[in-house]
């Protein structure tokens, strides 16, 4: 494990300091917490939007703070959900009286901590609603599991709920578009090289020089299958097929596409994958409304990618197009 750090136990804290120093005019830290928020929050007459989770997924989630997306991100230790009190403080800090909406990725830790925080806030008289994002089709949604994991599709949810809140949407309206977006978003990932948690000091898993893992999670949780490293075209075909098998897409349907890098995969490779994905969608006559290529939801220095498709209707399109000032998802 080779990392440019000071103290493996302090990486999340030091990162937060570095983030604030990079954007002192836009961000502030909630005192004595690991909450980063818009400098101008709470925003009057707007529902506050809070997301978060373990760190190591940067730019998720602090990179999505800004007008039109998140009001605050709650940052945990690497791959570890932030604790209840951190989330609770964030909720209190962004509430302008209109209530607070939580975007939670479906992991036991995140769900438990965010839900306990919501209970505390509700007890204090703050209105809180939430959405649990579970876009990863690698893990079937059966009684066998705790449900699908939330991965890069979460970024689209941030965008949709952030836009709705900016347009003056109520908590209930935001909840409705969030549910619609989650029902229409699907993702799947794969890895070729592992990542290592700084405090653990060693790689979370190993893959041989010729191997890849299909369906891996953003914390290195296992996927569907390990097999020989395939070409970009084969990988694109497999991931896209798995996603399409799970979402009802017809000829002429419109989608947003996100080709996400997990950490050490160069943009060059992501664009080659994009070429293949666009080809597949074109053959199926599925119309691509917008494409995003880059690192949106990483897993430290993991090598690999994930694909996300969001099926769009007119409402979701207009919310996707709504302006955003979040530095990692700027829309004019």
């Amino acid at each position: 494990m080779k990392k440019i750090i000071n103290d493996p136990e302090q990486v999340a804290q030091e990162m937060i300091t570095g983030m604030l120093l990079a954007a002192p005019n836009k961000l502030k830290q909630l005192k004595d917490t690991t909450v980063i928020m818009r400098k101008d929050a709470p925003i009057k007459r707007k529902v506050g939007i809070v997301s978060g989770g373990g760190s190591g997924h940067e730019p998720a989630h602090a990179g999505y703070i800004g007008s039109g997306m998140l009001d605050a991100a709650v940052i945990g230790e690497v791959f570890t959900s932030p604790s209840v009190d951190q989330v609770y403080e964030a909720i209190k800090a962004v509430d302008s009286g209109e209530g607070v909406f939580l975007v939670i990725k479906n992991y036991t830790g995140d769900v438990l901590n965010f839900e306990m925080a919501a209970e505390l806030a509700t007890a204090e008289g703050i209105q809180v609603e939430q959405i649990i994002v579970n876009d990863d089709v690698a893990v079937e949604d059966s009684s066998f599991t705790t449900g699908r994991r939330g991965i890069a599709g979460t970024i689209f949810i941030h965008k949709i709920v952030g836009a709705k809140a900016n347009l003056g949407g109520s908590l209930e309206e935001i909840k409705r578009v969030a549910e619609k977006a989650v029902a229409n978003v699907r993702s799947m990932g794969m890895a070729i090289t592992p990542c290592s948690i700084p405090a653990a000091g060693e790689a979370s898993f190993t893959l041989s020089e010729q191997e890849m893992e299909i369906g891996i999670g953003i914390h290195g949780e296992p996927g569907i299958e390990r097999k020989p490293l395939a070409t970009a075209k084969e990988i694109a075909t497999e991931l896209t097929q798995k996603i399409l098998a799970d979402i009802n897409l017809q000829k002429n349907d419109e989608v947003a596409v996100l080709i996400n890098g997990l950490g050490s995969t160069p943009d060059m490779e992501l664009y080659i994958l994009n070429k293949e994905v666009q080809q597949i969608l074109k053959e199926k006559e599925i119309h691509v409304y917008q494409t995003f290529v880059g690192e949106y939801m990483t897993a430290l220095e993991m090598g690999g990618c994930s694909f996300t498709l969001l099926k769009l209707d007119d409402e979701l399109k207009s919310l996707l197009d709504h302006p955003s000032e979040a530095p990692h998802f700027i829309v004019k």
């Binding site: 373990g54 945990g76 230790e77 570890t80 604790s83 209840v84 009190d85 438990l112 901590n113 306990m116």
Partner: peptide
């Protein structure tokens, strides 16, 4: 309990908390 809830994080934090 309060320290566990605020310092452990993850799934174990709220459960043991």
């Amino acid at each position: 309990a309060m320290t566990i809830i605020s310092k452990v994080g993850g799934a174990a934090g709220p459960l043991y908390g």
